[in-house]
Simulated assay, not measured.
Amino acid sequence: MIVSMDIGGSKLALGLVTEQNELVRTRHRPMPSGLTAKSFLALLEREIGHMMSGIPDGEILDSIGAGTCGIVREGTVVFSPNTSWRSLPLADALREAFQVPVVVLNDADAFALGVYHYEFASRFRSIGVLTLGSGVGGAFVGPEGLFRGYSGISPEAGHTVIRAGGRLCSCGRRGCLEAYANQRVLLTDYRRKGGDRKVANGAELFRRFRQGDPAAAAAFTRYGKFLGVGMASLFHLYSPEAFVLGGGLSRAAPAFLPSLKSAMANQLIAGFPPRPQIFISRWREKASLLGAAFAVREQSGLWYISKETAN
């Protein structure tokens, strides 16, 4: 069996996946803030141990797959804006601890694989995904596999610049999409518009929206506007047949989808390919866990631009 993980900036989810791609057990916990690399690895080892205790008699742990926030290269978390991890050899550490094959990839990549191969069952030739929460993750997938640049690193959709010299982003640059479309900024905008300062997360804010709170409606409208501008640029670059939104904030889609679609339509070039369909993932975490397990089995399914082609 495969232990699959979805590692986010604020939460950790684990699952047991069978050879038949069935998710038979899950486990969740919040991710403590300020973890050092050492304490983070110790936490993962404990949580994987808990999952292994649920493996049925006669079955063994075959491998581990992990989707994690940040820039990932060959199993190493090179940089993660929402954590303190730098050059963390995550795959090597887990391989040494459990003595099984380990695949580590970006969390949006894992989500994209799960969405493409399982939730939508290859219904579209190409799909772009965005994961919405403490930041903005993005990935693009088609029949050849995940899109990669020649360096092997997945696209950083959240760090597409939508306003030169704009807000400071957690990555240290200014004007990134993620600097305008994350949960912290969403709540800040809500409070600046006179909203209740006790509202602590996107789920609570969405409840206020459904109750008719005008400050919540205004904050979500602004959030959707920036997402739409960023998605228009991504569509011009990658032209996916559909976009699928996931992550915790995607549950609030009714509050921001109208402004997202309007802003995106206003930014698209006339005569460009037909506008993409936009869906909200119903699987979310399930897609991420199945996608990480898929990556373990299909390590060769990556679509690279060769250096020769890039030149």
Rank of each mutant, 00 (worst) to 15 (best):
L16F: 07
T18E: 00
Q20Y: 06
N21E: 08
N21F: 15
E22G: 07
L23H: 08
H28C: 14
R29T: 15
R29G: 10
R29E: 11
R29D: 08
P30E: 03
P30Q: 01
M31Q: 04
S33R: 14
T36W: 12
T36F: 13
K38Q: 11
K38Y: 15
S39W: 10
F40G: 07
F40I: 11
A42G: 14
A42T: 06
L43C: 15
L43F: 15
L44K: 07
L44S: 14
E47Y: 12
E47G: 10
I48K: 06
I48W: 06
G49H: 15
H50W: 15
M51K: 08
M52Q: 08
G54T: 08
G54A: 12
I55N: 04
P56S: 12
D57I: 14
D57E: 10
G58F: 15
G58Y: 11
G58L: 12
L61G: 08
L61H: 03
D62F: 12
S63E: 11
S63V: 13
G65W: 12
A66H: 15
G67M: 13
T68A: 01
G70D: 01
G70Q: 07
I71L: 04
R73Q: 02
E74A: 15
V78N: 00
F79Q: 05
S80H: 06
S80R: 00
P81N: 13
N82Y: 09
N82I: 12
T83W: 01
T83I: 04
R86Y: 08
R86W: 11
S87H: 07
S87I: 09
S87F: 09
L88F: 08
P89Q: 05
P89G: 11
L90G: 02
L90Y: 06
A91N: 08
A93V: 07
L94K: 02
R95F: 00
E96W: 03
F98H: 02
V100H: 04
P101M: 01
V103W: 05
L105S: 03
L105T: 14
L105E: 09
D107F: 12
D107V: 09
D107C: 14
D109F: 09
D109T: 09
G114A: 09
V115K: 07
V115D: 00
V115C: 02
Y116M: 02
Y116C: 05
H117Q: 09
H117R: 14
Y118G: 03
Y118S: 06
E119N: 01
F120Q: 08
A121Q: 12
R123D: 01
F124W: 09
S126I: 02
V129P: 04
L130Y: 07
T131H: 00
T131A: 05
G135W: 02
V136Y: 11
G137R: 05
G137L: 10
G138N: 03
F140V: 12
F140C: 00
V141Q: 00
